[in-house]
Every structure is written in structure tokens, then in C-alpha cells.
Design a binder for these strands. Structure first.
Lengths: 201, 201
DNA sequence: ACCTGAACACCGTTCAAGT
DNA sequence: ACCTGAACACCGTTCAAGT
């Protein structure tokens, strides 16, 4: 039974998160924005971390739903794969604070969070498997290949958010570029594996 | 002139960071451990964030030094590349709180931090360039290829620290595995590019 | 130049009490 | 069941003052 107050609190919290980052999300300011006393949240969440975990779970679920929608909508496996990777990037770059929160350190791993994480992971694995069958990605363990792809997207976004990518000022190596690079190399490797590898020095 | 107190404060802070994470690093506890009053830090750092930035800069510099040492020590370009990637992984997995701190959100990007980041980046680019010449990595923009490699290591470590890798319990897809996978695919792609690519459906 | 004690504003959390 | 006001312990930061 998601009470009205609970939803209002979550709305206020996510607004503060987007506007001022994690530090701006204080239980007192959240309560004030929601129009309740500063300790009303404790009737809906055991903890401040529980409130943050609820936000993270919702966001991770949203991402999973977007990925699933792409899988249904796009026609070709190649487009599904590329669009899925780009959805991850766009989401993270649009809501960096949510991205940092979702993949932050959780001393208490909420069950709800784990479920949402597994759900979006399953969709990704499905997309990768289809791409493998279409000859766009190398064959083999789909879980492991999915981990490879997710690690790259995740790392590219994280480095981009800190400014560790393209410090030269020139629009060098955006997360989207790196995703395309990886997909390109993997496609080449896929096609090469069936052919003999030449001798090396 | 790095005063003795300043060094003691940094030591205490990094100890607290490793022991209890970022939240455990309070200026008051740091001061107490250093044997000074709770506001003595303000004579050595303008801010709490400045103290954290100093730690991050030292760590990033340490990483860069380790990478440079590997480049000098290892004989073959292949070993240098692999060892460098593993050094990044080992450092991050051994000191997760330092890793999170170094690549955390910096509202104030200290000059010292930017210098340290560029230094370790330069070493990495150098290693990648050598590996390219040795035919271990695809030719082309070394900066961009370095970004690809760094993004993968970074993302793999980050996901591993949250537990988003190998949630099945089986020792599936460690960061080291993903690094090896990527290097393997890139080597195949390198050798394949000189040969004709077969028609696709 | 470096350090201290008191003080301020803010935060998470708890508790007794109200409806 | 849900909310409130007062209170507690803790934190970052500032300031006047000491050597």
C-alpha cells in the first residue's frame, strides 16, 4: 500500500537529488518539501538509506523497462544492441546523480534493489544473446560477454562524468564513441574467428 | 613545505577511509587521531574537500608511478599491457574506498588532482601505443583506444565492487577475466583488419 | 605561523505524545 | 496507522584568543 505521503517524499527526494546531488538530499529538506514534519519519513522508511534504496530501485527498474521496450520496438538485432547501449548512456548522462546513487555503495543491499538489478541484467543478456546469434558478437558465454559490454558502458559514463575522458577539450571519445568502437571491434573479431589467424612474429 | 601535522592528518584520514569508508572520515575524528584539536585541519586545508582531494591526488600519483614502474620493468609489450591493467584492478579492489574517492564527484577540481590524473593517463597512453606498434592492439587514435581500455577496467572494477558482476555465486567474470577477454578480442581484431572481411548476410 | 575552546547552524535519529 | 515537537549526539565551519 504505497501511501500518498510516501510517494510525495520520494518525489521530493528525487527532485533534490537531481537538483543538488546526493548531499542535497537531507531528510529534513525532503520532509519540508513534502509538507510534513522532519521525522515523518520514519513512518514510511526505516532509514535514510532505505529511502535512497527505494529511489535506486525505481530508477533501475525504469532502466530495465526502457531496455525491454527497445528490444520489442527495434527491428534488427544490431539496432537493438546499439540502442540499448545508448539508452544506458543517455540515462546516466541525463541523471548523473541517479546513476551515482544506483551504483553507489550499499551497506544494506535491499532485496528490492537486487531484484531490479537482476531484471535489467536479464534483459541485457537477452539482447546480447540475440546479437550473438545474428553474428554481431562473438559466440560463447552470454553472461560474460554481457558483463564485458556493461562494464565498458558503465566505465565510459563514469569517466565521462568526472571529466577523465577527452581532457584535451576536443570532443574526443564520448561514451557513445567508445561503445561504437567496442561494438566495431567485436564484430570484426566475430567474423575473424572463423578464419585462420596468421602467424605472429 | 609539508608540515608534520599536515602529513599526520593525511595519514589519519586515509586510515579512517580504508577502515570505514568515506562516511567514517570526519574532520573531528581525523583531528582526534592526529592528536590535535578538531579545527586544526583548517590551518592546513581550506576545506574538508581539500583534504580529500589531497588524498585522491596522492593515490592517483601512486597509481601512475606503479604503471610507469611496470613499463620499465616488464620486457614484452604484451606483458606490460596486461600487467598495467591488472595493477589498476588490484589497486582498486584492494582499496575500494580510495578508488571510489579518487573517481568520486569533485565540485572543486583541484589543480593537483588534474595533474596527477593526466600523469597516469599519459603513462597508459604510452603503454597502449607501444602495444599497438607490437601488433597487439588495433592501430589508430591511441588516446581513444586508451580511453576504451580504461573505461573497461574502470567499469569492471566498479561493477565488481557493487556486486553487479557474477551475481550467480559462481566465480563468473572477474574484472581480470573481462580485461583478458577484451585484450583477446582486440588482438583478434588487430590481426583480422589486415585481411579481407567476408560478406555479411 | 600554528593551535585551542567556545559557539553556530545543520543533520540523522529517537521518544513521548497526540489523533 | 500516521504525524508532531522536543531532545540528543554528531558534524563542518567560524571566530576570538592564545603562543
Amino acid at each position: 500500500m504505497p501511501s500518498q505521503t510516501r510517494a510525495t517524499l520520494l518525489d521530493a527526494a528525487i527532485h533534490l537529488l537531481d537538483a543538488g546531488g546526493l548531499d542535497a538530499v537531507t531528510l529534513r529538506e525532503v520532509s519540508h518539501r513534502a509538507g510534513v514534519s522532519h521525522n515523518a519519513p520514519y513512518k514510511h522508511f526505516t532509514d535514510k538509506e532505505a529511502l535512497l534504496a527505494a529511489i535506486a530501485a525505481v530508477e533501475l527498474q525504469r532502466l530495465g523497462t526502457s531496455l525491454a521496450a527497445i528490444r520489442e520496438r527495434e527491428p534488427s538485432p544490431a539496432e537493438v544492441l546499439r540502442a540499448a547501449m545508448r539508452e544506458y548512456v543517455t540515462w546516466a548522462m541525463t541523471y548523473p546523480a541517479r546513476f551515482k546513487l544506483v551504483f553507489g555503495v550499499w551497506t544494506t543491499g535491499t532485496e528490492e534493489l537486487a531484484v531490479a538489478a537482476n531484471a535489467s541484467r536479464t534483459v541485457l543478456i537477452d539482447i546480447v544473446t540475440i546479437a550473438q546469434r545474428a553474428g554481431l558478437l562473438p559466440p560463447g558465454d552470454s553472461d560474460r560477454l554481457t558483463a564485458l559490454l556493461q562494464a565498458l558502458v558503465h566505465g565510459a559514463v563514469d569517466l565521462a562524468l568526472i571529466g577523465h575522458l577527452s581532457p584535451g577539450g576536443k570532443g574526443h571519445a564520448s561514451p557513445e564513441d567508445l561503445v561504437d568502437d567496442l561494438l566495431g571491434y567485436l564484430r570484426i573479431a566475430t567474423n575473424a574467428e572463423s578464419r585462420p589467424v596468421p602467424e605472429r612474429l
